[in-house]
Write a protein that binds this DNA or RNA. Structure first.
Lengths: 202, 202
DNA sequence: CGTCGCATTGATATCGCTCAAATCCGGTGG
DNA sequence: CCACCGGATTTGAGCGATATCAATGCGACG
């Protein structure tokens, strides 16, 4: 883990947080924090990915959450004294760290920030629930269509993928092979149009 | 929809909300609100269940969230002017309604409430993500074990079910038949102990 | 040029879904 | 008290969708 520098301005970041973040870089398998450690900060992923996992003593590891670019994680840590799980960088990753004490203080002293923080949590909750309902769908085609409906914009529900199709496959809970086949089938039926990483309904 | 009376005191409800909630009763298929209506309130389910769904013009209905007893819903509506989906009671249901304007005002004026609201959202986010990771697991047994790990308490991760096993099946994204078989198999392997609606690991 | 990862397609296996039927259990009404 | 009913629970059989394993092409990158 390496401290780098003050970050550039981040879009959609509450104003009060703009200047108090510290940038850190991690390489694959670095630990951001471990279960049981005292909570020091909440984090925003600038680049890369962090896995939050809970490792049972029986050897089984359970991934609780994967935070990708633009995601906050450990927000709930604000209300706890110790982290409840492990956070591990799954590739080269850059994070913004916001000291928990500072954020807690801001919540109590800066009403505008408190509103923004609540709004941020509400957005994440909304997104999380949309993904939840998506994974509750049984058929691969339904999941892809639901993804376009919820994540796409405009009447055609257009989406331009940030990452690879493999990433999308994980997002919708399919193997990448199934996703390829499902996309091909939907395109053949004329339900979906695909041009490179641009997807839309028809 | 019927207005009933002032509610009793609710556990775990932020103090500032204790006295501003209105109790309403709905019967099956009553609409709490529709997509496009002006946001008037956020809600807490006292009893019953409410389905939040988005109905596409193509006839397909997508359930975005089911809020059961103790769940808030439409929290994200605080940051919007209109509801983004329909809310329908799926059975006889009692709700507490908190006027959005009051809650927004409290967020700005009552730092203690803002912290509690943020904590409430963070808890819901945490729970939602746990369910997300659960549904991302492929095998039925893994989902059941994950459920016990995340929802259970104590070293044995004990859970006493509030509802039926059919309800649990929906929660973990399985048919009830699959759940029965999976539980039976886990019990035979000695991984899970089951006594009525009480489940625990071994 | 070799390697690596993504994309794509094929063949096969498997797990969970669907349909079906029997039992159990609590509640309800006679 | 008993008959009845509806819903939950449980088990069985078979199918189908998706995972898995495998092979190939392709582009990026050193």
């Amino acid at each position: 883990m390496t401290h780098i520098a003050s970050p550039d301005r981040i879009a959609n970041l509450p104003a009060a947080l703009q200047d108090i973040g510290w940038t850190f870089a991690y390489t694959k398998d670095d630990r951001v924090f471990r279960k049981g450690e005292t909570v020091r900060a909440v984090f925003l992923v600038l680049d890369g990915e962090v896995c939050l996992s809970r490792s049972g003593k029986d050897g089984g590891e359970i991934v609780l959450h994967r935070a990708g670019r633009g995601d906050f994680f450990a927000e709930a840590a604000l209300n706890a004294t110790r982290y409840q799980c492990d956070a591990i960088a799954s590739c080269s990753t850059t994070l913004l760290a916001f000291p928990a004490t500072t954020v807690r203080a801001l919540l109590g002293s800066d009403p505008a920030f408190a509103r923004e923080w609540a709004a941020l949590l509400a957005r994440q909750l909304h997104a999380s629930r949309a993904r939840l309902e998506r994974l509750a769908l049984r058929s691969a085609a339904d999941r892809v269509l639901h993804y376009l409906h919820t994540e796409g914009s405009g009447p055609r529900r257009e989406v331009t993928l940030a990452g690879s199709l493999k990433d999308l496959a994980r997002e919708v809970g399919l193997t990448h092979e199934s996703l390829y086949r499902t996309l091909a089938a939907l395109e053949k039926k004329g339900l979906v149009r695909r041009e490179g990483r641009h997807l839309s309904l028809r």
